[in-house]
Amino acid sequence: MTIKYNNVYINDVATVTGPYEKKGPLQGYFDKGYDDFYFGTKTWEQAEGKLIEDAIDILLSKIGKTRFDINLHISGDLLNQTVASNYASASLGIPYLGIYNACATSVEGIIIGANMVDKGQVQNCICSVSSHNNAAEKQFRYPVEYGGPKPKTTTFTTTGGAACFITSNSKGIKIESSTIGTVCDMGIKDAYHMGAVMAPAAAETIYKHLTETKREPGYYDLILTGDLGVYGKKILKEYMKVEYNINLKNYDDTATMIYDLDMQPVYAGGSGPACAPLVTYGYIFSKMQKKEIKRVLLVATGALMSTTMVNQKLSIPAVAHAISLEVIE
């Protein structure tokens, strides 16, 4: 389902990262970076909440507003019961919608916010997401200090928080349209190969967006998927060619951009709800503001994985949502 917007803009953004992202190739593009995994808190879960708090603090000071000026806060993360978002929101006092679509949460939030701003239901809203490597490892995999071998297709959960401010004032980046994806399950059960789980969902959403808007892939200067990783990226390209006869050229994946894949121990690249927004808000937006690229289709991909369901031998469903971003002319 594709929705067109008349007047919705991302006015400003804020990004906070952990140590690995801070040392990665995009290091100059983030607002704040930490050197450890605790950020002055006692646990990783609390630290993840701090990422959202920090991102919103930075965002509010950038736009020159206080929390009382904000109509709505939409937030999500990877942790059970989205605790990072809940606890960060407890100290904010802004009307709050907690959402979950795994690593597609960032774009899901922007779609909800953009719709409400477009209809005039709210004047403005903040959409935020976070993920924390250690907190995610603890919840979904093994203890962090456990060195069990991992396959090459494993992705490395990004530590970071990102927030954006959406209004109908013509400033920043325009949200032109959005496509809400359907849940796609191609029978992949490998929890260490998320790229393969999510690639069909991304392909379907890209195809639906292009057909519903009657556009060619070349319409966009860049089509950007969330966190498919090195191998998922190849799978997506092949899938698009075989299934839809579309040759993706102007295409990249944020998972392969945020880290130095040769030097950092990240296997197939980054993942997590913060991966796509960190790269997009930091790096891509600065390129768009310089008008090096003008139209971007951001497709955030989420593997809706639960360790319980994987242990019950079920395959992993995935979803992808897209937003079309444009430079204001």
């Binding site: 191609m186 029978g187 190969h193 069909p200 191998y231 190849k234 092949e238």
Partner: peptide
Amino acid sequence: MEKNKYKQIVKKYTPKENRLFNG
């Protein structure tokens, strides 16, 4: 796409682990 056909694409682009070296 058929699930089996997709599994073949996945297999094509999934790297082999260095089993001999690891062993």
